[in-house]
Design a protein around this nucleic acid. Structure first.
Length: 294
DNA sequence: TATATTGTTACACC
DNA sequence: TGGTGTAACAATAT
C-alpha cells in the first residue's frame, strides 16, 4: 500500500527520470482511471512538458507546462514504472497506430496497465493498478487547492509546522478517538496509512486501541517521535513492499525487514517473544504486541 | 464462491 | 451540532 514514504520515493524517482520531458502521446487502456473523457485527456497533455513533481499526502502532483497538472493517487495497488527507451526496445515508431499499441499491451505483464505516457525521447511511463482504485486526474493548476481542500487533507507530518504542540493539539481535540484512527485520519495528519500507523504505535510502545485523551505527555512525545523517525527511515529505505509496491525503477522498497509488527500476526515480538496479535480497528487490521504496547 | 484487502466518503446516531 | 462510528464502495486474487 503506497503511503507517504512510498509516494515520496516515487515522487523523487519521477523527478529524476521524467522532469523536463515532453509528452508525445498517452495510451489510455482504462478510461475509468481518469476523470475526463479520453479524448480531452489525450488532447490536453499532448506536447506538454513536465515541469516538476510534487507530493501532497499520498497524492502525486505532476505539473505540466500548459496550466494543467496530473494528480495521481495510487490507492492500494497503483504503480508508476519508468521504462527507458521504450519505443526502441518495443520496436515501435513515434507514429505507431493506437490499435497496434493496444495489441502490444495485451501481453500478460501489462494485464493491469491502465495508462501509458510516451515521451518525445522514446522513454515511457506506465501506470499499473490491479484494483483500479487509483486515479490520474487532469486538473487545472488554479484548481489544485480546491481539489486538495475538498479532500480535507491535514498537516504534512514531515514539515516543520507539524510540531509537537500541533500534534498534542490534535490529540486534545479528539480525546475519545483511538490513536490508530487519529494517525490514519487524512484530515488530521496526511499520508499515514495502515502499515506505518501500526509501526508508529509499536515504536512508541502504545496500543493502537488507546484513546487519545488518556495518553500521558511522555506517550504523546513518543508517538510524535515515532511519526517523524519511522517515516524518515522508511523514505531512506525507499518504502515498504509488503504487497505489490514498486518504485519507478520496478524495485522493491527496503523497509519490509524493519517492520516490528505489521503483517506479523502469530509471529514473535522481537522484544519480548510474545505473539503479535491482530485486531480490527475501524474495520482495518491492526497488528501489535499485547505485552510491549500498553 | 465467499472473503480479504485500504482509502475515502456518505450517513446514522448521540 | 459536531464529533464519532460504521458501512459501503471501488475490483481483483485466492
Amino acid at each position: 500500500m503506497p503511503e507517504l514514504p512510498e509516494v515520496e520515493t516515487i515522487k523523487r524517482g519521477l523527478a529524476s527520470k521524467i522532469k523536463g520531458k515532453i509528452i508525445s502521446s498517452v495510451l489510455i487502456l482504462d478510461s475509468g482511471s481518469i476523470n475526463v473523457s479520453s479524448k480531452k485527456f489525450a488532447l490536453a497533455i499532448k506536447n506538454a512538458q513536465i515541469i516538476n513533481i510534487d507530493r501532497r499526502a499520498k497524492i502525486l502532483i505532476i505539473k505540466l507546462s500548459n496550466g494543467f497538472s496530473l494528480l495521481a493517487h495510487l490507492k492500494m495497488t497503483g504503480q508508476m514504472l519508468f521504462k527507458p527507451k521504450f519505443y526502441s526496445e518495443a520496436g515501435f515508431s513515434f507514429t505507431e497506430k493506437t490499435e497496434k499499441l493496444k495489441k502490444y499491451f495485451q501481453k500478460p505483464e501489462f494485464k493491469h496497465t491502465r495508462l501509458v505516457f510516451f515521451f518525445k525521447d522514446g522513454d515511457a511511463l506506465i501506470f499499473n493498478d490491479l484494483r483500479k482504485f487509483g486515479y490520474i486526474k487532469l486538473v487545472s493548476q488554479d484548481k489544485i487547492n480546491e481539489f486538495t481542500g475538498k479532500e480535507k487533507l491535514g498537516m504534512e507530518p514531515l514539515t516543520n509546522n507539524f510540531t509537537i504542540d500541533r500534534f498534542k493539539g490534535i490529540l486534545n481535540k479528539h480525546p475519545r478517538r483511538k490513536i490508530k484512527q487519529i494517525l490514519t485520519d487524512q484530515a488530521l495528519i496526511a499520508g499515514i496509512g495502515n502499515i506505518y500507523s501500526d509501526e508508529i504505535c509499536a515504536f512508541a510502545d502504545i496500543s493502537p486501541m488507546r484513546t487519545a485523551g488518556k495518553l500521558s505527555d511522555m506517550e504523546a512525545n513518543r508517538l510524535y517521535q515515532g511519526i517523524k523517525e519511522i517515516l524518515l527511515k522508511a523514505i531512506g529505505l525507499r518504502g515498504t513492499s509488503v504487497d505489490n509496491y514498486l518504485d519507478v525503477h520496478g524495485k522493491q522498497g527496503g523497509y519490509a525487514k524493519n517492520l516490528l509488527v505489521y503483517g506479523r500476526e502469530g509471529e514473535k515480538c522481537f522484544n519480548c517473544n510474545e505473539e503479535i496479535k491482530r485486531v480490527k480497528i475501524g474495520g482495518r487490521s491492526s497488528y501489535f504486541c499485547p505485552i510491549c504496547q500498553r
